[in-house]
């Protein structure tokens, strides 16, 4: 089979026209008649492609344009410009053959019918997707086993906990065995154990069916566990597309150095060694440019009463935070920002 990508996006953009008004009653009254509008570039010319069977993490802070992109890919929004094909379909044409092959899960929104048992919502989806009886029974069986749904299916949705509900939401979205999954924060608000269950399930589903998954999450554990590849967008622009491991090198060329001092810092200025992240009693955590790690640790050991010293890669959360703290359109000079960091140990 030719390796044509399942998802292919070229220069996709979405501009919203939003109404805005000043605070206050008069402004509110005025806006009833005439509204001021402003254009917001939610997605600004992004391009990428995803191959069959990949699980790609789609990262960005709130408002970065992730959900907008997912909505365009699932056919809910027309793009302002640019092209996208998924499984060879233009999503927003909402071709039924396309809709039958993809699914959208939104962690913050519910498709299960509130008052009736979960299994009855499943039945409804069976009717909507026209799933043959035998296939339906088999799929429900598999999903029930993988997600441990057996005790939940007969309960009305409103009696389920958030985690249980999410498991059922995911199952309901997979009954028609889609080839492409758009998962928008599927683990949001869940406890750690439940997050892990969902994560394992997504991995398992991907392995069993070879389905392509595009996933957004604010939990880096999700991303680390599931996605070899991540796509980072910020202010609607693509910042990074590549291996998760490469993300740290590119955006956070830092190490975290943690030192424990014999007599505390003793009033000595520590920011000569690096940016002080945490300082409590005798423990200090410093952020040090990767290239200077050796020099800095050497100096720390020579100049201070060090009891213990560890050097670590920064946690992925910090990397991401580092990425998103970049100003708008900073992509081009990002690696250079190291030099502008609020310390300059070279001069010491």
């Amino acid at each position: 089979m030719a390796e044509s990508p399942v998802i292919q996006i070229d220069e996709l953009s979405k501009i919203y026209t939003v109404t805005e008004r000043e605070a206050g009653l008069v402004a509110a009254m005025r806006s009833l008649v005439k509204r001021k509008t402003r254009d917001v570039r939610a997605v600004d010319g992004i391009s990428f492609s995803v191959s069959e069977g990949e699980i790609v993490g789609f990262l960005g802070p709130n408002g970065a344009g992730k959900t907008t992109t997912l909505k365009m890919l699932s056919g809910l929004l027309y793009p302002t410009s640019g092209r996208a094909t998924v499984l060879g379909f233009r999503p927003w044409e909402r071709n039924r053959d396309y809709l039958r092959r993809m699914t959208l899960v939104m962690g913050q929104r519910n498709q299960l019918v509130w008052d009736i048992p979960v299994i009855d919502t499943f039945e409804l989806n069976r009717a909507v997707y026209r799933i043959p009886e035998a296939e339906y029974t088999r799929t429900v069986g598999v999903l029930t086993e993988l997600l441990e749904l057996a005790p939940l299916l007969r309960k009305p949705t409103r009696n389920l906990s958030l985690g249980e509900r999410m498991k059922c939401e995911i199952a309901a979205a997979l009954l028609h065995r889609p080839w492409v999954l758009f998962l928008d924060e599927p683990t949001i608000g869940l406890d750690v154990t439940m997050q892990r269950r969902i994560r394992q399930f997504i991995a398992e589903y991907n392995q069993r069916t070879g389905a392509t998954v595009l996933l957004t999450s604010h939990y880096m554990a999700d991303v680390e566990a599931l996605c070899k590849r991540v796509i980072v967008i910020h202010h609607g622009k693509l910042l990074y597309d590549g291996d998760l491991s490469g993300l740290a090198d590119r955006f956070a060329p830092f190490k975290t150095v943690e030192v424990e001092l014999q007599n505390g810092a003793g009033g000595r200025p520590l920011d000569r060694y690096g940016e002080v992240l945490v300082q409590s009693e005798g423990r200090i955590t410093l952020r040090v440019p990767k290239v200077e790690t050796a020099t800095v640790t050497g100096r720390l050991l020579a100049e201070l009463d060090v009891v213990d010293l560890t050097v670590q890669d920064p946690p992925i959360e910090d990397v991401i935070e580092q990425v998103f703290s970049q100003p708008d359109g900073a992509t081009s000079h990002l690696p250079g920002t190291v030099a502008d960091a609020p310390f300059d140990s070279q001069k010491q």
């Binding site: 909505k71 699932s74 056919g75 809910l76 909402r94 039924r96 053959d97 809709l99 039958r100 993809m102 699914t103 959208l104 939104m106 929104r109 519910n110 498709q111 909507v128 997707y129």
Partner: peptide, 18 residues
Amino acid sequence: RQGTLDFTLTKPADAQVL
């Protein structure tokens, strides 16, 4: 209002009928 119409629109059936 709640955005759950998205689920209806991603179904392979006529949205008006649904």
